[in-house]
Design a protein around this nucleic acid. Sequence first.
DNA 1: TTGTAAGCGTTATCAC
DNA 2: GTGATAACGCTTACAA
Lengths: 339, 339
Amino acid sequence: MSNITLRDISKALNISVSTVSRALTDSHEIGEETKKLVLAYAKEHNYVPNRMARSLKVGKTRSIGVVICSIDNNFVAQMLDGIDQICTESGYQIIIMQSKESYEQEKACINLLYASGVDGIMISPSLQTTDFTHLKELQSQGFPIVLFDRTTEELTAHKITANNIKGAYQATTHLILSGCTRIAHLNSKSTLAITRERFEGYKQALVEHQIAYEEDLVKFCNTSINENTDENVATAMEELLKQKPQAIFTATDLLSTKALAYLNKHGYKVPDDLSLIGFSNSDLAPILNPPLSTVRQPSRQIGELAAQTIINLVKGKDIGPAETVLLDTELQIRKSSSR
Amino acid sequence: MSNITLRDISKALNISVSTVSRALTDSHEIGEETKKLVLAYAKEHNYVPNRMARSLKVGKTRSIGVVICSIDNNFVAQMLDGIDQICTESGYQIIIMQSKESYEQEKACINLLYASGVDGIMISPSLQTTDFTHLKELQSQGFPIVLFDRTTEELTAHKITANNIKGAYQATTHLILSGCTRIAHLNSKSTLAITRERFEGYKQALVEHQIAYEEDLVKFCNTSINENTDENVATAMEELLKQKPQAIFTATDLLSTKALAYLNKHGYKVPDDLSLIGFSNSDLAPILNPPLSTVRQPSRQIGELAAQTIINLVKGKDIGPAETVLLDTELQIRKSSSR
DNA sequence: TTGTAAGCGTTATCAC
DNA sequence: GTGATAACGCTTACAA
């Protein structure tokens, strides 16, 4: 198993290195005889090409960088699973880096990835990120970049994300149809499309059902890591609850579960006292107390599509101008919103 | 940002490539003047060394392979988080590969990682794995390997894992002290130490409290991916419940939540009808229905220690003979086991 | 069909 | 203290 090289093979078989190289890549300009010979020898001594040497030579590493906020997040892990599957199938290695919701760390990740020679980068920006020049710079050199899940209008690129407006709209509409009119909305604080779009869907549903929008029923709270999220959520919930809402629509996975925990802890009966519905991809939603109604995102599919897109870009395939792909969410009604 | 090389710097500054190289690695045999000059120029044009070239030359990639069952698993994600932190701090890149609980796929991962030149491998074997020759072969060539979380006696290596016997013992003892004598045990099917040790801890607690061990109260079920786990768990639970247990101790994260889901679905009141306690690292345990008592493992710490160990090995540090590090678990009593 | 040789960007071994 | 030069393992013109 100790590494054998092209030269070893060439010496053993008394043919040149280049012939061996070509034989192994099944070049048409090599005799069947020699091909078989080389292939056999290579297999027997289980030759495995040196990735570094190959990369150095051809200037491509067959690896792509993936930047996410945190690997320790159900939804993210599911997307990574999808990404990994596609990339492995296509012979690409992924290098995962976490921004931990920090803009500085995100830039550091990008630099590290670029320095380590990845052929392309897929990124779901941090909630802190408002400036995208670190990505624009790369792009301007023709470096392939794909945004997934979290997107922004600041950057022209291929983007794969859930249909956030529609998902939020459906969730809110569901609450309205169940008889709620005072519906609170808890969102995370960011300038990313994801935040605005879910807020947008919420407002659309209100408008459509002639319910006046009330600013006091909406809170955006800082959920960046290290930002004592529990406390921020508690404060936001406290203020929202003062407004006596009949229901709350939470816009992210983290907020949904933290809001439920808060309500349970403070003696609110869900859904008797108020309904709750949120974005969440946790498999545990059905056995939460109470079972949590959720907008579920096609996490694996987002990952798969994004991976396929970056691979196509990296391979130089013409996949047309940058476009945003919106994948439908799925409304899963459970007890937490059944009044 | 387009890559600048040593040669570019050497030309611009009219000094040799080797001088530049040495200046950048802060060699003591270079004049302070030139050092400053080179460093300044490098910074200004943000020179970043070519990883491939460096790796090819020195025969090390500063990357380590991490093999886990699935990234889409709370506990695993937490360990990965710990691993990532240590590796990033030490300037090592990690390459994560999933076995999906398949022995064949695990072997494929190992081969791919080895072929891609990682300096060492950390692995948490699949539940299917009983034969460890694929790892032994690597080891016999002096290739660094560390086992984490899931270990085996089949392999002599550095191992980092939770104190499974103690954790299981504590959980079972807790059930006994709460008044249960008919305690069922649901475990996963594997020959890994993790399975046997938790079973062992369960039995130890019984013995110590003079409770007779009953084979019918114990089930090992196949939780490999693709093995219709839900159905297997349902069958196992059905049979266990026929024995009218007063409590169930579930041995893995997956089994714990699936068991709870099963009980809820079939109208069992936990803890009134029976208590439940399980291994789980889900942050949602407190808001499950009912809040789930758990044995919590120091996931991040396991990852961190394992990462530190493999890095030490890779660096050739003498860290003594292979030993197993056992980290204490934490018993978290909640409503599901409060009678 | 096969061989020769250059070169990818580093680092290391010699010289000077 | 600095500079040539070879070498890591591979691919690829260009020759033969």
